[in-house]
Design a protein around this nucleic acid. Structure first.
Lengths: 229, 229
DNA sequence: TAGATTGTTAATCGATTAACAATC
DNA sequence: TAGATTGTTAATCGATTAACAATC
C-alpha cells in the first residue's frame, strides 16, 4: 500500500517464531552489560547461523550498522515492538489440574508482556479457591473479562475431552488467540489463532530419532555401541 | 543402498512431526469402533488436508487400498512402529519445581510408549521425597539409570540458570534425547537431539498475530471493531 | 464394469544458505 | 583509508498443493 514501514508486508512465520529467542539472547547480553553485538555473536547465543539471523532481522527493518553491529537495547526494543510486547497482554488460564496449577504459578509469564488476570475451571467445586493468589472463577465470567480486562489470549490446560467445549466458550466470549496444552485438535473459526504445546508429540518425535540412532549403531555392529564420540 | 524398505531414506522432518497427530486420530477412530478410514476423514480429524496426509503416509510405505482407504489398526501399528513406539521408552524428569511436579503427575506420559522411571533434582533437600509415587533422586544416580534401565530420554524442567549444567550431566551419562522446558538454548554435542517447549515463546508468537489483528481492525476504522464475522 | 480413493507427479511456494556488494 | 560487518542477492533446498493416473 504505502512506503510506511509499519504497513510492511507480512514477516515470514519461520522468522516470527525465532524472534522471541533473539529477544531472550539480547536480554542476556543487556544483563551482562554488553551494549553492542555482531550478528555472529547474537546468532551463536540464539543457536542459529548468522546469515539466517541477518535475513530474519532484515524483515523488521535496518537496525544494524555496517562494520559495527547492533545496539543491544535498540534491537531488543524493535523486536519487542514487532512482537507486540510493548503493551501488556492479559491472559486467562482455563483448567486448574496439575498443569494449570503449575502454569498459574509459573513466574515466566509476567516477565515479558503477559499478565495472568484470571484462572477458570468448569468444576464448581474449585470456584473461589485461591491458586497463586488468584481465585478460580466460573466460565460464565469470560464475557466480563473480555469486556473489562481486554482479555484476548486464553490458555487451555484441561483434559482433551473438554478442550473443544472450553475453546468454544473462549471464542464465543471474544478471545481470539489460544494456547492449547490439551492433546487434541481444536476447531476454530477464521480469525482465531491456535498454537499447540504437546508433551506427548515432542516425546514421540524424540523417540523416532532415538530409534534411528539405535538402528544406525546396530548396523555398524554391536561392538560400535557406546564407542561413537 | 538396498530396496529393503527398512533401509528407506529419511522421512522428512515435517512429516515426522505430524505422525503423532495421525496416530492420535487413528486411536480415536479405533475407540469409536471404526475400522476403516479414507485419507479425507483421517485428514479432517488431524487438522490437515488430505493431499498432505497421503504424501506423508507415502513416505512410510503403501498401507492404503485404492478405492477403499486405510485399515485403522494396521495404519496405527505402522505409524507406531515408524515412531519407535512398539518399544517402551524410559524417561527421567530433572527439576522438581512446579512444572516438574506437574509433569511427574501427568498421566499422558504412560499412555503411549513412555514410562517415567526416575525423578531427579540437584537440591539435596528434596532427595527421598515421594512425588507421584516415585522418590526424588540425586543427579549422580544417572549413570546407573542409563546402565540398568536403558534411560535414553531426559526431560529438563529446571530454571534456565541450571539447565545447561543439568543437560551436560545427562549427556555425560549417555542420554541422547532431551526435551527442554527451560527457557534457554542448550549446547549439546553431535548425536544428541534437543527439542524445546517454551511457553513464553508460544505466547509471544500469539501476541504478534493478535497485534496484527488489532492493527488490521483499527485500519478499517474503530467502528469495524467487533463487527467482523 | 463403474465408482471410489490411493499414491505419485509436477508445479508452486516458502525457507535456508553462502557469497558479496554496500557502507559504516 | 583499511578493516569489519551489515543487508541483499541468487542459488539451493525442502515442503505444500492440486491434479490425475493407477488400481482396488
Amino acid at each position: 500500500m504505502t512506503a510506511d514501514p509499519s504497513a510492511r508486508r507480512g514477516i515470514p512465520d519461520a522468522t516470527v517464531a525465532r524472534l522471541p529467542e533473539y529477544l531472550r539472547a539480547l536480554t542476556g547480553f543487556a544483563e551482562r552489560g554488553i551494549t553492542s553485538v555482531s550478528s555472529e555473536e547474537l546468532a551463536a547465543a540464539s543457536g542459529v547461523r548468522s546469515a539466517k539471523l541477518r535475513k530474519d532481522l532484515s524483515h523488521l527493518g535496518s537496525y544494524g550498522v555496517r562494520g559495527v553491529g547492533y545496539e543491544v537495547d535498540h534491537l531488543a526494543y524493535q523486536i519487542s515492538r514487532e512482537l507486540g510486547l510493548t503493551q501488556d497482554w492479559p491472559v486467562a488460564i482455563v483448567g486448574m489440574g496439575n498443569l494449570g496449577h503449575a502454569l498459574a504459578a509459573y513466574s515466566g509469564f509476567a516477565t515479558r508482556g503477559f499478565r495472568v488476570v484470571a484462572l477458570l475451571d468448569q468444576d464448581e467445586a474449585l470456584h473461589g479457591q485461591q491458586i497463586a493468589g488468584l481465585p478460580v472463577r466460573p466460565m460464565d465470567t469470560l464475557d466480563a473479562l473480555v469486556a473489562e480486562e481486554g482479555l484476548a489470549i486464553g490458555v487451555i490446560a484441561t483434559p482433551a475431552g473438554s478442550a473443544q467445549d472450553v475453546c468454544d466458550q473462549l471464542v464465543a466470549a471474544g478471545v481470539s488467540s489460544i494456547l492449547n496444552f490439551a492433546p487434541c485438535v481444536l476447531v476454530v473459526p477464521d480469525g482465531v489463532d491456535v498454537r499447540k504445546v504437546d508433551l506427548s508429540t515432542e516425546l514421540q518425535i524424540l523417540a523416532f530419532h532415538e530409534q534411528r540412532k539405535a538402528l544406525a549403531s546396530a548396523a555398524l555392529g554391536p561392538v560400535a555401541k557406546g564407542v561413537a564420540k
